[in-house]
Structures are given as structure tokens and as C-alpha cells.
Design a protein around this nucleic acid. Structure first.
Lengths: 234, 234
DNA sequence: GCAAAAGTGTTACGAATACACCCATGA
DNA sequence: TCATGGGTGTATTCGTAACACTTTTGC
């Protein structure tokens, strides 16, 4: 620690958000098209700069809100990217955050205004600066997180079917999972409530809708039960 | 992302190092006594500020070197701490790094010069600012890391005994481990070489010294073997 | 009646755990 | 000779993985 603070460099602190969404066709990322130089026209993560009077978390929230119109979404700090030449304009560091949002709920007008688009996680365009690196880090963090905590539900609507949940996990883990083993393990956590409604959009037979039970989950966690959402060994 | 960079705040970026060491008596942390206001005389992590012309990793390296005299040690970025009022002097954010060093190898004179001291991990003094939070984060990251990769060896001398290795893991995981199960699992990874030397300092019988085989480990990793250093379920 | 997706149980294997005694040596 | 820490093997349990057929219903 320094004796005085006067002689040190003040630096631009950026924040970049990796925004995950999910629908039946798979896991997706929300990207914007940069409308200014450098790298104008190229795809990038939604970002912004830290203001002196807000915390890192608040700044990330603000930036996410600006693009999606959403508040109170799952948002976790990922990593600080700090190569000297990461931004050609000026020395910056960037703290990357990743968000899990319900893809149905974001503000489509805002997204349009920003020239943003959802991309399938396995078919992303080239990104500016070190943003691809950030995305890779986010994917692997999500993998880890999803196998320890029920974050998957952040990406789903309130009611969802088992096949949907399975597609989500398969996309997160990038593997095929066995239907029977998957159901058994997910249901054995005892934090899903089966409704008697059926989702008939995607099949003739229809699939039962389930709801994640936050209270039951919190109960289990606080009673020290180690709840693991690991539908396969990784 | 902003249209222009001019109108944004430049901010002090600090780095703080959680420095782990280990000897027979357990896992330890190297702390310094602040010799300037605010919080003069209180214990704190070793820290410093990011210079414009160095990366975050380089800055962390530099700061660690300044206190320990060591280069090329295990150093991993932990988390960015960014509450508005975390430092009463001026708005700063701090990127915390944690280091695993061989406690025998650091420069004792430097450490003395800084008024630094090793504290047992379970008997730490109060720390300034948000440094206790950083330490907690480092402990849990180390736990995670140690169960997935052989980082424990970073904390040990080149040759070490099974009982020593076990004490280390017990300290990291904060549990007692079964001797037989521990040995079996560690040895089953096949990346330790037994020497025929015995360490007789701590027992009459003496304990065999082992060496970690970096090449064998890299081989296994790159051949896709999923090597797990998890001596118990957590 | 058939195509398409949803739903359901059992067996086998391997990993994790629990557990207690003998060994070597210096004092 | 005895106290101290080092070293060793087996049986059991539990979780994970592999695997195939029946159900429902819209067309």
C-alpha cells in the first residue's frame, strides 16, 4: 500500500456484460453492434464505464438495465480484464459481469434501439477487443455455477417443462444427457413442484409444467443440506 | 459502451494480495502493518496501485515481489472489490489476487522491513477496509482450486511427506481426513514420485519424501485425463 | 394408425467411506 | 521398553451410468 495516494494513475474502469438468455432452440447471448469507432459495426458485449459515485455491482446493474430494461436479475462478477492494450483508445481495465435473464421479459424496443441481437451460444460472431475471452470465461463460470446452485431457473419462465430444463442443461454443459437420469436427479432435489398443467406447444402428448420452489430451496440450504444440481459428472 | 471516452471518471485501481504460506503448524497468511493513515498500525493485506503501463497481472506480480522478493509464484486473480466507500481517502476499486508461496523461500529481510508477519489462517487479526472479505473469498477459492488442480504443491517445498501434504489439505478443507483414504487417493493420481529419502525431523520412524512430477501431470492433463485432487467430498 | 415427443425402472459398476492394527526408531 | 508418529488393506455403501419400451394425441 502506498504512503500517499497522490502519485498514482487514475484509470478508466469499464464494465462489460455477458447476457445469457434461453429459449427452446438453445442458450443465447445478447450482443450489440458498436456504432462508433474504433471497431464500428463489429459486435461487442454491452458495456459502459464506472462512475465515481457507484459501486461495481451498481454500475453493472445500470448497464444491464440500459439495454434490457430489466432490474433485479441474476448478475455475477466474472473477472477483471486488464491487459495494457486491450482498448486501443485509452488504457482501460474492464470488469466483466454475466447476467442470466428470462429471454421473454426483456425490452425489445431498447434492444432494437441498440442494434442488439441474440446469438446462439455456439454461433457467435467475432467480437471486439478481449470480449471473446470474456464470453469463454462466462461459459465456464456458468457451467460451474449451474452444477452447484439452481441458477438454471433464472433463464427459464416461471413454469417450464422437464424437456426444456434438460435442453438448457445440455447447452450449458455441452453434452447430451440421459432423460431418465436427468429427471431422477433433478427431481430428487425436491425443490420442483409439478403443476397439473401441460405445455402442448411442442408435442402432441404435452409435457407437465414445473415450478421452482424458492422457499423449499432456501430451507434446504439453510438447514445445511448440500444441494447439488449436477445432472452428470463433468 | 460510450460514444466517447472523454466524459468518464478515471479511478484509482488498487491491487491487494492474499499471500498463503504453509508449514507443519498449518496454513498461514502474510499480513503487513500499515504505517500510514488512515488505519495506521492496523493489519492489512499487501497492496499497491495499478500503473498505467502495466497489466493487472503484472501489477499483482510487482506488488507480491516487493514484499516477498519472489517471482514466478502461483498468483491468481480473485475478485474485484468496488464498494464506493471501501477506502475512506479516495474512491478506489481493488482487484484482489491470491498467491501460494513456499514459506521457506521468501525474503525475510523485506518482510521485516514492511513489518509483516505470518498469521495462522484461523487466528487472523482484524483487517482494514474490506480485506477480511477478500481473505474469505481467497480461502474458498483455494478450497475449490485445490480440489480440481494440484495447487497444494505450490505451498510445499520440493520434497514433502504424506503427513505434511495431509495437514495441508486438512487446513485447506477445514476437516480431518482419514490417513489411508487420503494416501490412496493422492497416490492414485500417479503424479507423485516417492524418493528413498526419509524426513526424520518430526518422528523417530521417519516419513518418506515425495516429489510432485510436473511432467507426468501435464501429460495426463493434455491427454484429457480428468485428474481430480479431491481427497473428500465437500 | 402412425409419427413424435413425453414419461417411466432396474441393473451394474466404480468411487467414497469407515475402520484397527503393526512398524520403526530414538530416547 | 515404550511412546510417538508412519505406514498399510478390506468390506460396505452409495451415487452414477447404461440402457429400451410404453403412453398420449394430433394429424
Amino acid at each position: 500500500m502506498a504512503k500517499h495516494y497522490e502519485n498514482y494513475d487514475r484509470i478508466l474502469v469499464a464494465l462489460d456484460c455477458i447476457i445469457f438468455g434461453f429459449d427452446r432452440s438453445g442458450l443465447k447471448l445478447l450482443l450489440i453492434q458498436r456504432d462508433f469507432e474504433p471497431e464500428k459495426g463489429k459486435w461487442s458485449l454491452m458495456g459502459g464505464f464506472l462512475n465515481r459515485e457507484e459501486s461495481l455491482d451498481q454500475a453493472a446493474d445500470r448497464i444491464l438495465h440500459k439495454l434490457t430494461g430489466l432490474k433485479n436479475v441474476y448478475l455475477e462478477q466474472l473477472y477483471g480484464f486488464g491487459e495494457v492494450d486491450r482498448d486501443p483508445v485509452e488504457r482501460t481495465i474492464s470488469i466483466a459481469y454475466y447476467a442470466l435473464i428470462n429471454i421473454k421479459e426483456h425490452d425489445k424496443e431498447l434492444v432494437e434501439e441498440y442494434g442488439a441481437r441474440w446469438f446462439p451460444i455456439d454461433d457467435l460472431p467475432d467480437l471486439i477487443f478481449d470480449h471473446s475471452e470474456m464470453v469463454e470465461a462466462a461459459k465456464s463460470r456458468l457451467k460451474y455455477r449451474a452444477s452447484h446452485e439452481p441458477v438454471g431457473f433464472e433463464l427459464l419462465p416461471e413454469k417450464f417443462t422437464m424437456p426444456e430444463l434438460q435442453i438448457l442443461y445440455e447447452d450449458i454443459y455441452q453434452t447430451k444427457l440421459d432423460k431418465r437420469n436427468f429427471r431422477r436427479r433433478i427431481l430428487s432435489t425436491n425443490v420442483l413442484n409439478k403443476t397439473d398443467e401441460k405445455q402442448k406447444k411442442y408435442s402432441k402428448k404435452g409435457a407437465y409444467l414445473y415450478r421452482f420452489d424458492h422457499e423449499k430451496y432456501e430451507e434446504k440450504v439453510s438447514s445445511g443440506e448440500s444441494l447439488v444440481f449436477k445432472p452428470l459428472k463433468l
